[in-house]
Write a protein that binds this DNA or RNA. Structure first.
Lengths: 150, 150
DNA sequence: TATTGTTATACTCTATAACTATA
DNA sequence: TATAGTTATAGAGTATAACAATA
């Protein structure tokens, strides 16, 4: 992400009327912002998401996490390895091929800090939206994601 | 993007309540979908955006486009080169260092098809959202992007 | 047969630094 | 001094294929 340009852009921009385009730009901007806020914990946003998932469901396997986060099984291997070698998670054999992932004490401590960062960031995001539109935020994003809100 | 899992996911998922997370997932999913629809034109979503911009403001320079799309100047070079070597755009010297970009006849023809794909996709996106929420879509996305709607 | 974890590999996207030519 | 275009390079992120071990 480049830092925002402060001079007004006088260019015709036919793109900012396209929800899909603005969705991409909003996502790219917020990912960059969240990654920056997580930098001091040496975490990427997807790693924080992974820790949050494991904390909510200890014993999840790599494959299950990958399916939830839409990360390929093959890409989960180095991903989980990094969390493991940093001592944030442990693997526990479930059967001969699956290994449940759980947080270590260090992992729980890092997650506690990450959770604060994430929650503060989510709050700052929602606060960008005019109050009367806030109830529509999740339903709209879930719909664009093509998921039922529930 | 993996194809969606059809079996319901019974896993606790604390993430889908987080607007920022859902924003990222919605964006990733829609980028993948749009890229797939543009595949037959051998265009990526950012290339289509670039053509749309040049068409709206012929003579834009690489740097200006990069600032508009948040693509680094250094990354714009191979990007523009590809469009040029495919005969979609031409460079016209503005002064000793800047080159304005314009669409070639081929570029206009490809853009016409790309525009249809993009507009159809944008329409399909907005249709995912319940009708009464649609007016809030752009204001919310612009707010999350941290831009004024106007 | 299908699934888990893994390795290898390739491609895209993004980020930084440095260079030149020009304004 | 600042800007435009370029090159080189490194790091993420993502995609596919293939393999062994296990269910």
């Amino acid at each position: 992400m480049q830092m925002p340009i402060s001079v007004p852009n006088r260019m015709k921009d036919p793109l900012t009327r396209l929800p899909g385009y603005v969705l991409r730009r909003a996502s790219a901007a917020t990912v960059a912002e969240l990654n920056q806020r997580l930098q001091s914990l040496d975490l990427r946003h997807a790693e924080a998401a992974c820790l949050l998932l494991i904390d909510a469901s200890p014993g999840l396997t790599q494959s299950e996490i990958g399916r939830t986060l839409d990360i390929q099984r093959s890409n989960m291997a180095p991903f989980a390895l990094r969390l493991e070698s940093r001592g944030l998670i442990e693997r526990r054999k479930v059967d001969g091929r699956s290994q449940g992932l759980i947080l270590t004490p260090i992992g729980r401590s890092v997650l506690a800090k990450a959770r604060k960062v994430v929650e503060a960031y989510e709050l700052s995001l929602i606060r960008r939206v005019p109050e009367e539109l806030r109830p529509a935020v999740l339903p709209i994003l879930m719909a664009l994601w093509n998921r039922q809100s529930d």
